[in-house]
């Protein structure tokens, strides 16, 4: 089942990171769509929570060099 998770990061300093993080998230199993907003630091991921839990999303973003936290909205 696909769920939509929202994460936030306040570490973005250059929009070049946007595609990098989107690609890193999309490469994970069960991720249908990933959208990174540079201006607000909002990250939206459509994923299968069973295949890739939110923690795995945080790990993938961390691997690209940024810290993100899950958010309620």
């Amino acid at each position: 089942m696909s769920t939509k998770s929202i994460l936030r990061s306040d570490e973005f300093s250059c929009p070049s990171c946007v595609t990098k993080i989107e690609k890193a998230l999309s490469a994970l199993p069960g991720v249908a769509a990933a959208k990174v907003h540079f201006n607000t630091g909002r990250i939206e991921v459509e994923h299968d929570a069973a295949a890739t839990p939110v923690d795995a999303l945080v790990q993938a973003i961390r691997a690209t060099g940024y810290e993100a936290r899950p958010a309620a909205f």
Partner: peptide, 18 residues
């Protein structure tokens, strides 16, 4: 080291990074 490490991670997902 950190810059190169991030560059390497980006390359693995075929991303050409700064």
């Amino acid at each position: 080291s950190d810059i190169a490490w991030r560059a390497f991670h980006a390359l693995r997902i075929r991303h050409f990074s700064i």
